[in-house]
Design a protein around this nucleic acid. Structure first.
Ligand code: MN
Ligand code: MN
Ligand code: ZN
Ligand code: ZN
Lengths: 144, 144
DNA sequence: CTATTAAATAGGAATAATTCCTAATTAGGA
DNA sequence: TCCTAATTAGGAATTATTCCTATTTAATAG
């Protein structure tokens, strides 16, 4: 069962296991597409109607510090979170808010190799993420 | 003189040439490091003390629509702008807010080639930007 | 030049996202 | 079971941004 794993994640990060934190982790686990705090709040409140909004924000920030979630860089005034810790890149839709995961080990490796050789003066590279910007072509909307 | 070029930029975009717009373009031109709207406001107000804040935001959004500025993706709740239209990537400092430009045509070309071959189902790639995440090593702070 | 008018702006209120504050609760160890 | 530091609820406050509308203005035509 999943709850065991979740509470392990918390213990491993030296965080007390609380219902609020479990609820946020559950939300992160089931919400796809890089949810906002607001989406996470909605999900959490379905099962735990009296979790405070501030708690959700604080929890997300705590998780971020511990590396249990990542923040997804966007050009919008609203934060989005990513529970997928495996290295990956992102497809950004120019027309909608949609952000999709893009896994490509070959690409990741290519980039890493490139920066192994190519030193950047005064900068130590720790991570490389590609923003793949464009538009989704959902077959249906192709009939203009 | 520079003003000529700036007002040309505006005319070419079918935008009326106003002092406010000139001022924002001047600010963008001289502020480095991907300024926030707030930094731009400060700069503008030095020379034109009664430009309204809303005007600056609206102007920036207009410029964005016309492609005169770009928005820089960050994981902060504050927008940052980029007046450099030439294709480039960004160095993000993990510890500070610093974002530096990274020009590397070889890298850019490598990425473009890669995605020329590698089709992504249901997605049309229009732009590729690399987030190079790490820390700046300013020689001075190396003496711990 | 002057008149016309659609577009742009000032100034301030409103909204949205996030953070802060503090008294009450609670998880986890002794 | 008790203790205590950590966490939370609830709401106020803050920050960044957007919206509103009366007034001003840039551009164009006469
Ligand atoms: Mn905000
Ligand atoms: Mn905001
Ligand atoms: Zn992702
Ligand atoms: Zn840049």
């Amino acid at each position: 069962m999943k709850k065991e794993k979740i509470s392990m994640d918390l213990k491993n990060s030296n965080l007390k296991v609380t219902p609020q934190r479990m609820a946020v982790l559950e939300a992160l686990d089931s919400l796809k597409n890089h949810p906002t705090a607001d989406k996470i709040k909605e999900y959490v409140i379905k099962n735990h109607p009296n979790v405070a909004v501030g708690t959700i924000y604080k929890t997300l920030e705590t998780f971020f510090e511990k590396g249990l979630v990542k923040k997804v860089k966007t050009e919008k005034d609203v934060m989005r979170y990513d529970a997928i810790l495996k290295k990956h890149h992102h497809l950004y839709c120019e027309d909608t808010e949609q952000i999709e995961d893009f896994f490509d080990d070959k690409l990741t490796k290519m980039l890493e190799e490139y920066f192994k050789k190519r030193e950047i003066p005064n900068f130590q590279v720790k991570d490389l993420k590609l923003q793949i910007i464009g538009t989704f072509i959902n077959k249906k909307s192709l009939n203009k």
